[in-house]
């Protein structure tokens, strides 16, 4: 594998992990624009646990401790944050991310504004298997009782409550587990590039991750995978097409095309690329089943 392909693969894997972190709350209809905050927590915590100036633990242990650390913080803040809904939830998670980044820049023992070097290196042989595990875990998670509960909350919260779903618990678990996944992604980012600074994890990152999920679709666990792959592949492909055709303006403006693509995608597939209806249709096409009766209402548009 060439170095360029490997670099692209790493970016894709990290995006997928982040996207699943946002997907879990989004599956229950909670929009989380605070991805950068949880990624920062994970990256810095793991780097500190691992660093010679910190706790000097082995890499795998620091990553896990960072996940626990982020999980505890996410659990604690999930109660006030989940009291808010809709626009307020987007704003609250966003504010949380800004507070985290503001604090991280000012902590001198993790390097402050000049960034923090990370000791142990995680290469592609670590990141790819971990990503596959995250994908498998997310599919499993969405197929459990809790996953079903999340989907029912997404479709109609009042009806879910009437059917005995503990809405609060389901939301808190989804939020916390999602935060832990983002922490994992952040730690891997730090350990792969061996250098972190809080400014890299900015609003744009949070926005992009939320877009991965919403474009891929929040109805099925395929959504974040498709969304992240789409984001990683389409701009690069556009660049290669543009360069081979000698169109300089297209190469420079490929993200503009991409933005237009997002707008058009929302026109034609408002629930994201992958919906339950499409999944069923593909499934019945692939396995030659006569008809798949889905037990949930409201799939597709």
């Amino acid at each position: 594998m060439s170095g360029y392909m490997e670099a692209q693969l790493i970016i894709l894997c990290l995006s997928i992990i982040y996207a699943y972190g946002i997907f879990l709350p989004a599956a229950s209809g909670q929009l989380n624009l605070g991805a950068a905050g949880f990624i920062t927590l994970g990256a810095y915590a793991s780097a500190w646990f691992n660093a010679g100036t910190g706790a000097e633990l082995p890499m795998w242990l620091s990553i896990m401790l960072a996940m626990v650390f982020t999980g505890v913080i996410a659990f604690a803040i999930s109660f006030p944050i989940l009291r808010t809904r809709g626009v307020y939830m987007v704003l609250a998670t966003f504010a949380f991310a800004e507070v985290v980044s503001g604090i991280a820049i000012n902590l001198e023992f993790v390097g402050g504004a000049s960034g923090f070097p990370v000791d142990d290196h995680a290469d592609v042989t670590v990141i790819v298997p971990v990503t596959i595990l995250v994908i498998l875990f997310s599919f499993y998670f969405m197929s459990t009782r809790l996953g079903l509960a999340l989907r029912s909350i997404h479709d109609d919260e009042s009806v879910a409550t009437l059917f005995g779903v503990n809405v609060r618990t389901a939301k808190v678990v989804a939020f916390t587990v999602g935060a832990m996944l983002m922490s994992l992604g952040g730690s891997l980012y730090g350990h792969h590039y061996n250098y972190i600074e809080a400014q890299t994890f900015n609003v744009l990152l949070s926005i992009y991750i939320l877009l991965y999920v919403l474009m891929g679709g929040t109805q099925t666990a395929w959504g974040p995978l498709i969304g992240a792959a789409f984001f990683a592949i389409v701009p690069e492909t556009l660049r290669e097409i543009a360069e081979s055709a000698g169109l300089k303006w297209l190469a420079e403006g490929r993200f503009m095309m991409f933005g237009a693509f997002i707008v058009l995608l929302m026109v034609f597939r408002p629930e994201g690329v992958m919906t339950r209806t499409l999944q069923n249709r593909l499934g019945s096409g692939l396995f030659r089943q006569k008809k798949v009766v889905s037990d949930d209402a409201g799939g597709g548009s």
């Binding site: 929009l31 987007v90 939320l210 403006g253 993200f255 933005g259 707008v263 929302m266």
Partner: peptide, 28 residues
């Protein structure tokens, strides 16, 4: 097309798409 536009988080995503378009237009 879809009745209540705010139901699907659609305007939010589309407006983020426009944000990307404008920023990259200026950058390029």
């Amino acid at each position: 097309k879809y009745g209540d536009a705010t139901e699907h988080a659609l305007p939010l995503v589309s407006s983020l798409g426009f944000l990307i378009i404008f920023e990259h237009f200026v950058v390029s």
